[in-house]
């Protein structure tokens, strides 16, 4: 058995079958908190860390999921617009995850990502930092583990529910407002001299 307490949620490739972070004693944050590499921190600190990671990335990429891509209920558009704005300010690419189905004969990793083999898209586009937003929790966790197993990508999950231990940084209860806070943090950092890689 792997020692539980020492487990850190860090970029991989972690190997053949990395464990779910929750089974290694990593806990989800409470409201007002975030999770950075397996440690619970105040939300603001996690937001700053996200801004820092995005700005220092060579090829930051947003993976918007169905919950923001499709304007299915009130509030979605506002959140989708906020996420797009953040991606634009960072200079990040957007590669969608429009649904979760396994694709036949195979996906085009250039233009889409799939939770069953997210590593293909990450490898193909040489993505070093990615942001999940609007992906159903179950599928986000499945994908995040596969990414940790097979790639060195730094994962950030902006979750509308309770967050994701399997991401390197996660925020919970994310609304349009929360995303705008990240955008603000990015802008401030930029003004303070941090340049995009």
């Amino acid at each position: 058995m792997t020692a539980k307490s020492s487990y850190k949620v860090l970029p991989g490739p972690e190997g053949y079958l990395p464990p779910a972070a929750a089974t290694m004693s990593v806990m989800l944050p409470d409201p007002g908190e975030g999770l950075v590499e397996g440690e619970i921190v105040p939300q603001e600190q996690a937001i700053n860390k996200i801004a820092e990671k995005l700005l220092s990335a060579k090829n930051p990429t947003f993976f918007p999921g169905p919950l923001v891509l499709w304007a299915w209920k009130d509030g979605v558009i506002e959140k989708a617009v906020a996420a797009k704005e953040l991606a634009d300010v960072v200079g990040a690419k957007i590669i969608p995850m429009p649904d979760y189905r396994p694709k036949y004969p195979m996906i085009n990793p250039e233009i889409e990502i799939n939770p069953n083999h997210p590593n293909l898209t990450i490898w193909h586009n040489k993505i070093d930092v990615c942001v999940f937003v609007g992906v159903h929790c179950h599928f986000a966790n499945i994908a995040l583990k596969i990414i940790r197993g097979g790639t060195s990508c730094y994962t950030i999950a902006l979750c509308g529910e309770m967050g994701h231990e399997d991401a390197m940084i996660t925020l919970r209860d994310v609304k349009a407002d929360t995303i705008r806070k990240i955008t603000e943090a990015v802008k401030e950092m930029k003004a303070g001299g941090v340049v995009s890689g």
Binding site: L17, P19, A20, A21, A22, T23, H138, N141, I142, A143, K145, I146, E165, D166
Partner: peptide, 8 residues
Amino acid sequence: SWQQEILA
């Protein structure tokens, strides 16, 4: 990964 998520 799906099964691990159930355990999680």
